[in-house]
Design a binder for these strands. Sequence first.
DNA 1: GTCCGGGCTCAGAGTCGGCTCAGAGTCCGC
DNA 2: GCGGACTCTGAGCCGACTCTGAGCCCGGAC
Lengths: 226, 226
Amino acid sequence: MTRVLVVDDDAQILRALRINLAARGYQVLTAVDGTAALTAAADAPPDVVVLDLGLPDLDGTEVIAGLRGWTQVPIIVLSARTDSHDKVDALDAGADDYVTKPFGMAELLARLRAAVRRASVGQVDGDPVVVTATFTVDLAAKRVRRGDAEVHLTPTEWGLLEQLVRNPGRLVGQKQLLREVWGPAYTRESNYLRVYLAQLRRKLELDPAHPRHLITEPGMGYRFEP
Amino acid sequence: MTRVLVVDDDAQILRALRINLAARGYQVLTAVDGTAALTAAADAPPDVVVLDLGLPDLDGTEVIAGLRGWTQVPIIVLSARTDSHDKVDALDAGADDYVTKPFGMAELLARLRAAVRRASVGQVDGDPVVVTATFTVDLAAKRVRRGDAEVHLTPTEWGLLEQLVRNPGRLVGQKQLLREVWGPAYTRESNYLRVYLAQLRRKLELDPAHPRHLITEPGMGYRFEP
DNA sequence: GTCCGGGCTCAGAGTCGGCTCAGAGTCCGC
DNA sequence: GCGGACTCTGAGCCGACTCTGAGCCCGGAC
């Protein structure tokens, strides 16, 4: 469960955030001033901090600095100040995001999700890959593996596969494929597609005669089925 | 140098951003529509993307999804829409931040700094020394050892090796290598690559004719295999 | 049943990209 | 001004990739 530390001296806002966050399955911790926030965070490190800038005891940037001294937890700043100077200060002090009051709850929640997602992807280091039952495609590294073995693809084969994999489950038209891989002058050479799709299937499919992931849609185009 | 890809169909904004970013030491790449943005990013991966939502060809969330399919690069969305619904959609699609037009340049720059800082903390991992079976590369000290002996590299050789070693296991395109080592005017001189890769292999590989770490991907680029 | 169009497979020809080597040009330090 | 290192260029060779054409299969139309 994701733990959110909400820091605000306004009981109204605290209440509203507590209810909304709890309803969405977050575990909510609260603090009403800067020192309480710092001790609470040190006590039980949260996954994300929502921090109001107008605290009674400490300046907002001090709280941010206090947290940043030892943790990279995402910090979303709330503030009534719309002055760009305040925003710049808070962000440069180490905040991740800055939302001005009055704020929409939907937007705040979306920014919260974005911050948490970002923090969590940073932990797993691997490249994002598309996986099927028989092969895996690493779009960033431009690599394809089938089981343990690396599969070598030619530029054309890779271009074709990339187009299909970038639209998982969706039908990609013949013209579109031809345009993206061969260029706009080749949109009628649909036989190229047949030849190279056959090669891809031979390299990637378990049973090339009955493909399960690189599907032909007769007369229309092709589809990659994850 | 931090590379920023700015995507906007408004020439005014493109110009303003280019000037402001370049003045602060960023390297600026631009694209005027979604497909150009996706190919530009695949061609030369930027460190951060500034993306306008109102593009002529693709929907903003499609561009975000297209990037998120293979990279975790920070995406800052620009938009004239203030509707919270749009913000939620963009953030949930994978954007990192959402700035509404008209925006203050100081604020945008601060959010940009925040996004880049965040992305860079995860990367610092470990020592800047890359080790393979036959040689070791110390990126910080700019030294290469092969067994006990120090190997001397010329500036060009080093630039090439550095690019490859900084992307271990990943394919680095010919254009990208040429741009990074020789400059943007040389992106077609792929014979340079052959000559210098051959030299590197002669200096570093056990069997230069059958390289195990500096791999050619015909028609696409080269790959460093740790 | 026959015809026809779209799709699959296979094999061969031509081209293109990649490797190697050697030599000329250029830049820098002494 | 000289020497040496570095960078660039060109030629020959080779292998791989791309394209093309022919034959075959399948399903639908007549």
